[in-house]
Design a protein around this nucleic acid. Structure first.
Lengths: 163, 163
DNA sequence: CTGGATATGGTCAAAGATAGTCAGAAGACC
DNA sequence: GGTCTTCTGACTATCTTTGACCATATCCAG
């Protein structure tokens, strides 16, 4: 089997047994698989992206780590639809706002949370001199990451949202 | 491997038990943790700065000491300070995360709101090929816009958080 | 008093420890 | 052979730890 697949499986096994999240050291994992450390980043980018329902965080320096959080269980159609189809690689402010409005109406997010999301992707927040195309790419990624975060929170508390 | 975290926890435990303030000796603490005394300054600078809601005082010479005090501030004061003075034109992910963490600890925002903001300014959300300097400019504007939204919400309803 | 000795804490730059990025090499698959 | 995926290595960015040198109190001998 290919290296990337092995690493992917290894991490997914950890995620299955332990909890919905694992923390590991890039350098150790790379050594374990006898590959370049950057290989790990490749695996994270291609197998554990938001599009696939994962959130990753990391820290450099002494005591650094990589944390991977699984958010969707295979089958959360609605969330994946939003993330992959509705949002995709690029989304405008208007379109984002409509989506956020819907989430609020469906009580997936509170009014305050909706306002916060709107603020984050607003033109005002993004009034930095870069092309609109780039801004829309930013919006898309931000929306996806925020959605996954909400979904992650909902899980576990049974807190009234059906993403 | 994470000496700084240990020292941070140690001090926070003291702060939790005793009072909103502790006094300690830099040299003793350093000896206790078997590290260089200047390590303590690093911890103070990165974990007990005004950003995190602490102020520190100290005195040199015989009978010298370091005192750490947890600051109490209303939510709106804090928000205004962050928006008008602290954030500025550019801010890193880690700095932002610390500010958000503090707002959560002071219950100015809920856990979900904090996670949402963290998600919005995370490296993953901003993994678009533009220079870091631009990303940090984005972060600053996004943070200010989001915090302003929170401030507005608080003013309107006085609800949910510590205004 | 006064000035040096002693006792602390502060600063900063450099070294150490991790992780990230990206261009191009190497493979795999039509 | 062409193209897409995988893999690597050199370079970069970020976080931590230390050590040499600096600053400021307190104490004490004279």
């Amino acid at each position: 089997m290919k290296l990337s697949d092995s690493i992917e499986n290894f991490i997914k096994t950890l995620l299955a047994e332990d909890s919905p999240e694992v923390e590991l050291k890039r350098s150790e994992l790379a050594e374990y698989f006898g590959c370049a450390p950057s290989q790990i980043n490749y695996v994270l980018a291609t197998r554990f992206s938001p599009d696939q329902g994962y959130i990753t965080e990391s820290r450099r320096g002494g005591g650094g780590y990589i944390r991977i959080v699984r958010v969707v269980q295979t089958g959360s159609q609605r969330l994946m639809y939003l993330i992959n189809e509705r949002i995709g690689e690029s989304i405008s402010e208007m379109e984002s706002a409509r989506l956020i409005q819907q989430l609020m109406e469906q009580q997936v997010v509170t009014v305050r949370e909706a306002e916060l999301m709107r603020a984050a992707i607003s033109a005002q927040a993004m009034s930095v001199p870069v092309p609109d195309a780039i801004k829309n790419a930013f919006r898309a990624r931000m929306m996806k990451t925020m959605l996954l975060t909400i979904a992650r929170q909902n899980r576990g508390q049974g807190g009234g949202a059906n993403v």
